[in-house]
Every structure is written in C-alpha cells, then in structure tokens.
Design a protein around this nucleic acid. Structure first.
Lengths: 112, 112
DNA sequence: CCGAATCCTAAGCGATACTG
DNA sequence: CAGTATCGCTTAGGATTCGG
C-alpha cells in the first residue's frame, strides 16, 4: 500500500530542497562553510551575480534560520554572513550530495 | 584563500540539486523508491499535479539517467517507471535530507 | 491508459541606477 | 561598503483539450 500526500509540502525532502534551492544558494553555502565572510567579499567570490539577487538569496537563507547576518559598527560599513548551527548541520549532507554529483558526472555511480 | 567559481555549474552540489529540484521530483523519488509504478498509479498517488507536468518531471529524471521508463506491450497500454542504479544511489542521501528536515521543522537541529 | 499540443500566469532572475 | 528601487525577460508550472 503506497502512501499518498495530501499536500506537497508534507514531503520532508521537498521542505529541505526548497530551503536550499535557489540559483546561488549551494554556492553561498559552499563559501560560508569556510567561515564568516563579508558581503562584498562573497560577492566578488561569485562572479556574474547581481548584488540584488545575492542579497535576496542571503535574506531567504537568513529567514530560514540557516544563515546569520552580523552588523559590525564600523565605518565603512561591515556586514558579515555565517552559517547558523542549523545551517552547519546541513553541511555534511550537502557534502555527500557533492560526492554523488562528482561520480554522477563521470557516469560511474555505483554504491553510495 | 577562498576558491572562486568561474562558472556556477562547476559547483557539484548545484549539479545534484538541479537534477532533483523540481516541484514534484522529491515526491516522485519517494514513490519510486518503493519500486516500479505505472504512470496513472503514480499520478493518482500525487494529487493536484497535471499529467503534463508529471510527465515533464519524469522525462527530466529520465534524461538525467535517474529514472527508467519501460513500455509493456499490452492493451490497454502499460508504462512503468522505476529508479535506475544512479537514481537509487541517491536515495540514502535524500533520506538524510529527510531526517534533517524533520528536525528542522521542529526547530531542534543539533548535531547531524 | 498514456501522452502531446496549446495557452496562460506567476515567480525567479538579471541589468541598471541610486542612497546612507 | 552594503543595500534599495525599478524594469524587463525567461521559465516552470498549471488548465485544458485532443489523439493513438
């Protein structure tokens, strides 16, 4: 007997994927896993993304509780972003996805 | 020294996420992990998706080599879908995402 | 039963210019 | 340096209809 979802959002996998699905979120995650980083530094590390969009993605991760935004009262302005514990808990899982993808592109996926 | 991606698509995590990001793909994955299933059976198990969209998602998974489509020469027509080994190799990773998401929605994410 | 064709809408993303 | 505002494009997804 197969299970039936009444609502799409009841699928936990989808919940997780929605949180990290965004054109630049995986890359943001990648960079933040090295530690806190300033906005402009992150922006320069990711070519071809507009500041507006990068900020949108960061806001979404922040609202999801995966990223924390810290304002340092300096001049010139300094704002850093870093992973929260929730976000960091995701890192090892994303790392496994990473490994899978590397094997995937080589067409040699066998046992995980 | 931080790494810089020249192209977004070089991010392996993004490659993987792109393959499984789609409104219904996680749910399709969930159902197919129970074994092969007929199209209409799958369609009925996922309420509120049009056949067109469900077919699109299946095609994409098929083109990605994660799902296999089998035509049985019966009448009435019978077509079943099932995970390929590549697709099945993804299952345990998705399962961990699942566990993370369940803790996430409870706000109690600690150590993975 | 399975799938293709058409039309439509909402959302994501991008380019650009501007501000404290 | 960090962020906002506006505009326009492209695409994913959905409703519906038709066909083998």
């Amino acid at each position: 007997m197969r299970h039936t979802y009444r609502d799409v959002e009841q699928c936990a996998t989808k919940v997780a994927l929605d949180l990290i699905s965004g054109k630049w979120k995986p890359i943001i995650f990648f960079h933040l896993s090295s530690g806190a980083i300033r906005f402009t530094e992150l922006w320069r590390a990711i070519p071809r993304v507009s500041k507006k969009v990068l900020l949108e993605q960061l806001r979404q991760l922040e609202n999801a509780g995966l990223v924390e935004r810290t304002v340092h009262n300096n001049f010139p302005p300094e704002v850093t972003y870093q992973l929260t514990p929730k976000g960091a808990a995701l890192a090892p899982i994303l790392h496994r996805l990473d490994q899978w993808a590397m094997m995937y592109v080589q067409g040699v996926v066998q046992i995980s």
